[in-house]
């Protein structure tokens, strides 16, 4: 495990460590004094995003002006559906290329890198729809995660002597991880027969096989039963104890409040707020984005009638038909259809 030298890093404390010792949460301390504003500079950013935009036709899916992600912390990325969270994930990991903008990891630009190159630098991701490799066994899934394997080159693959020892070491490491994620009994089963929650665990464990520096989890708790959620949460916290930087997308606010050191809120492709978890529920922009701007204004009967009348009048103006006489047109078109 390559430990980072800077703040927030915490040497690997062995498998399953961090349960006995109280968590240090260095990132949380480092971030405590920051102002709660969008684009604020972090003391030790691992990833920096600058003016990244991505449009699909006329739709701007992502337009992030400036965003820094603290090293060694857990950053939660939240926002309503369609806010651009997953698109941002795709951009950061090379699965999609932005129209404009730059983004760096450890000061190194990630622009125009393909997904596997990003992964080799130590930024691994999981997927919203879990991608367990069904017809490979659980152990084979794990072994695939190991980086720089000699046996993965065509010619050396033909000479088992060149990769046997490496394979053995990787298998031991995989078994350690599987034990930690309580999947070791399933190692020879096809990944396709695992339950949804077990697949989430496997995908996370597989990502850890590559000794990542940044782990990006796209909705790790989606579709997982509450009991397993607790254990998944524990695993995510362990990643932080081992000095990894975690970015995750999540909808469950209890989860977000529980584990994140910093929360970034996106809506309509933009970052609309960021701050520690406790700041978010008080933020007006966030509440508006989730619930609509007028959610707390009571709607009286008279008001409702007035809004309805206004809408009807607007429709009537557009169609050039007096209010209340909107039906003849539909009838005549029906007749046309029958002829």
């Amino acid at each position: 495990m390559p430990a980072d030298q800077n703040t927030g890093s915490h040497a690997a404390s062995g498998t399953g460590g961090g349960h006995s010792a109280p968590p240090a949460r260095l990132a949380q301390k480092a971030l405590a004094d920051l102002p709660w504003e969008v684009g604020v500079a972090k003391p030790d950013p691992a990833m920096v995003v600058d003016k990244v935009t991505r449009t699909f036709g006329g739709l701007t899916a992502v337009s992030v002006d400036h965003l820094e992600i603290q090293r060694g912390g857990i950053t939660g990325l939240i926002g309503p559906n369609g806010a651009g969270k997953t698109t941002l994930f795709n951009l950061l990991t090379g699965f999609d290329q932005p129209n404009t903008g730059t983004w760096t990891f450890d000061g190194r630009s990630l622009g125009r890198l393909s997904p596997h190159q990003v992964a080799r630098l130590g930024v691994v991701r999981t997927f919203q729809l879990t991608k367990a490799l069904s017809r490979l066994t659980v152990l084979q899934n794990m072994l695939l995660g190991a980086q720089g394997q000699t046996g993965e080159s065509f010619l050396k693959a033909l000479i088992p002597g060149t990769w046997r020892a490496e394979e053995k070491a990787n298998t031991e490491k995989a078994m350690d991880l599987l034990r930690r994620f309580k999947l070791d009994a399933k190692k020879d089963d096809f990944a396709g027969i695992l339950s949804g929650g077990q697949r989430k665990l496997l995908e996370m464990a597989r990502a850890l096989m590559s000794d990542p520096k940044v782990v990006m989890l796209d909705e790790p708790m989606a579709g997982v039963n509450p009991a397993l959620t607790q254990s998944l949460l524990g695993h995510v916290k362990d990643l932080r104890e081992e000095g990894m930087t975690v970015v995750f997308v999540e909808h469950d606010m209890d989860v977000v409040r529980d584990i994140s050191d910093w929360v970034v809120v996106m809506a309509a492709g933009k970052v609309i707020a960021e701050g520690p978890p406790e700041s978010i529920s008080q933020n007006k922009a966030v509440v508006d984005a989730y619930l609509g701007a007028h959610h707390d204004a009571p709607l009286t009967n008279e008001e409702e009638d007035r809004v309805l009348a206004e809408a009807e009048a607007a429709i009537a103006r557009e169609e050039g038909v007096p209010p209340g006489g909107g039906t003849p047109e539909t009838i005549s078109s029906e007749k046309d259809g029958k002829r």
Binding site: T93, F95, H116, A119, L133, L136, T150, G151, E152, A157
Partner: peptide, 29 residues
């Protein structure tokens, strides 16, 4: 036989299952 029991063959089988997952694990698919 030799190729498919090696890590090289494992990558091929993984590509058959899901290319994107393999990309995310740092393999040049």
């Amino acid at each position: 036989f030799l190729l498919m029991r090696s890590p090289w063959g494992r990558v091929l089988k993984a590509i058959r299952e899901d290319e994107d997952a393999v990309r995310a694990l740092g393999k040049n698919v």
